[in-house]
Design a protein around this nucleic acid. Structure first.
Lengths: 94, 94
DNA sequence: ACTAGAATATTGGTTATCCAATAAAGCCTA
DNA sequence: TAGGCTTTATTGGATAACCAATATTCTAGT
């Protein structure tokens, strides 16, 4: 994995498969700003190269889908981040 | 702020003021590996320069303390990260 | 006083992360 | 079939984040 962006991508794709633009918009909604193409596509390329995400072309659109390996990687990353940052975020919820 | 490490430092210092080594050990407990001096001290220096953290020397020890500005910055960062990543971590808690 | 160890700190360099600009390819409407 | 629009993608470069190695300063035990 690359970092927090890749982490978020894996999570979003675990909810449902998406087109790149859908992903970018959802990320934008969470982070407050839509990521640039030069940010999101290299991240997707990286995730695809490491077999955590698979691609399927439909005309000009590309569907990104979480692989089985991506799912287990996501689960591990979630545990890691929950241990490291879980209580920090919870502490801000009130 | 620099990144996730600075975020964690601010949070830990919001619990109580600490020496650098205490910080490093607590971070190590959370992240699984104690950060190198070349990681943590530049981060502390940066936080100090931006007045989010204050320092107080006691012999060879240095106490790092969260400033008022650091507290408000932390609160904002917590809201941001909670919005961006909150449900991702919560989803892994079960 | 000397020395061993601990805490703090800096330096130099590597990799990760991300953006701005640009390009290409497919779709739609006229 | 020409034009513009959308989506996907690449390139080049800037900055952030971090580590390994080294240096400095203070403390404590002898």
């Amino acid at each position: 994995m690359r970092g927090m962006l890749s982490f978020m991508i894996l999570f979003l794709l675990s909810k449902r498969s998406m087109y790149g633009q859908e992903l970018a918009e959802e990320i934008g909604r969470r982070k407050g700003e839509k990521p640039n193409p030069g940010t999101i596509y290299p991240a997707l390329k990286d995730l695809t190269a490491s077999r955590l995400v698979s691609v399927e072309s439909h005309g000009r659109m590309t569907v990104y889908r979480l692989t089985k390996s991506g799912r287990t990687t996501l689960a591990k990353a979630q545990k890691y981040f929950a241990r490291a940052y879980g209580d920090i975020l919870v502490a801000s919820k009130k």
